[in-house]
Amino acid sequence: MKTHFMLTTIAVLTLAAFGGALAESAASSDSAGEAAGVVAGGSSRTDRSHEAPSERRATPMAPSASNQTKAAGTSVQPQLLRSSVGDSADAPSGRLLLRIPSATGQGGAGPTIEGNEPPVEPAKPGTDNGEDGPTFFGEPASGTMLFIIDASWSMWKFKDVGSGEDYDGNAIASMSRMDCVRYEMVKLLQQLNETDSFDFVLLAGADKDPPPGISSPSKPVTRLWKSEFVACTDDVRAEAIDFIKTVETWYGTPTHDALRRACTEYGYEIDQLFFLTDGAPFPVEWRDGRIHKDAILADFPGWFAPLEAYGCRLSCFHIGQDAGAGTFMQEFAAANGAKYIKR
C-alpha cells in the first residue's frame, strides 16, 4: 500500500509539471504573435467584438504624401468600392468594383458608321468621267474649235517629220508634213461628239501666180470649209474626215489673211484656236509694204483680244524642219501667250 501511494504521488507530480510546461509554451506563442502584429501593422490587435457588424468595416487610411502628389497631376481618379454586405469580421469581403469616370462625365461617342456606298474612283487628270479626252498633237481639244491648217505647196512636197501611220493605220516610212496633219486631224474627229463644234481655215494662196517650175495654183487666198461652226454629228464627222483626206495644197503662205479671217469672221466665242504652219509667212513683203511677219506681230493682238477676253486658248504647231517657220512661230507664240508645239 505504501508503494502504491508513492507511485500515485509521482504520477500526479509528473502531470502537473507537464501541464505547467504547456501553459508556459502557450503564453510564449501569444506574446510572439502580438509582437509580430505590432511590427507588421504598427499596433496590436484590438478587440472589436463589442462593435456592431456594420461598424466592423476597416476605416480607410489617409493617402500617403507620394500618392497625394500623383493624384494632384491626374484629373481622373479610379474609385475602389468594397461591398459592405456581411455580419462577421472573418467573412470574405465582397467583390471589388473598379469604376473610372470619363473626363467629361459623359459616355463616349460610338464608332463612326461608314456609308453603304463604295468610294468613287478619282478621274484621270483633265477629264470628268475617268476616260482620256480628245487630243490634237497631244493637246486637249474640245468645245468650240477653229483650226488654221497650212495647205501650202510645201506641206505636200517635204517629208521631214519621220515615220508614222496614215489615217487608216497603214505604216508610212517617211511621212510628208500633210500626212502628219491628216493623221492627227482624222484621229481627233473620230473622238469628238455632238457637244463639240469646229471649222477649218485653210492657209494657202497668193496674190501673184507661182514662179516657173511650180505647177500648183496660187488661188484662192485662204479658204474656209463651212464659214461657221458645225456640231460634230455623225454626218458632219464623216464629211469633215473626207474633206481632210482629200484637201489639195497650193502655192503661197498668206498667214496674215488666215489669222485675220479666223479672228474676225467667227465671232469671239471660241474655246480653242489651233494654228498650224510649216513655213514663214510668204510672200515676205505684204500688200501694204510692210514685212509680212512684222505685219502679223503688229496686227494679231488686236484681232485676238476679244477672243482672249472670252477665254480662248491659242496653240501654235510648227510642222517640219523649216528654220524660218520655227523662228516665226516661237516669236509669235511668245508675243501672244500661246503654247508652242514642234512636230
Rank of each mutant, 00 (worst) to 15 (best):
P210S: 14
L259R: 08
K226E: 14
K245T: 05
A262F: 07
V221L: 11
P254W: 02
R260I: 02
G252E: 04
W250Y: 11
W225A: 10
S227E: 13
E239C: 03
K219T: 15
D235H: 00
E228R: 03
V230S: 08
A240E: 02
T233Q: 02
G213S: 00
A231G: 09
W225E: 11
W225G: 03
P217E: 11
L224A: 08
T249K: 03
W250I: 04
A240N: 00
A262W: 03
V236I: 13
C263L: 09
Y251A: 03
T222A: 05
S218N: 14
V230P: 05
T222N: 10
R260Y: 07
T233L: 03
T233P: 05
P210F: 12
R261W: 08
H256F: 15
G252D: 08
Y251E: 07
C232W: 08
D242R: 04
V230F: 04
L224Q: 06
D235P: 03
I241Y: 08
S216Y: 14
I241E: 10
E265R: 05
G252S: 06
R260G: 09
I214C: 08
V247N: 01
V221C: 10
K226Y: 11
P217A: 05
S227L: 10
Y251P: 06
R223Q: 14
I241N: 02
W250E: 04
V221M: 10
C232P: 00
S215V: 13
E248S: 10
T222V: 14
T246Q: 11
K245P: 00
V230N: 07
A262L: 05
P211Y: 12
I241R: 01
T222L: 06
P220L: 06
L224R: 05
S227H: 07
S216T: 09
G252A: 04
P217K: 06
V221T: 11
Y266C: 10
T264V: 12
D257A: 12
S215F: 11
A262T: 01
E248H: 04
E248M: 09
P220I: 04
D209L: 11
C263V: 02
H256M: 05
C263Y: 00
T249W: 04
D209W: 02
F243R: 01
L259K: 06
E265T: 13
V221N: 08
V236R: 06
I214Q: 12
T233N: 04
D209S: 11
D242V: 03
K245A: 15
C232T: 13
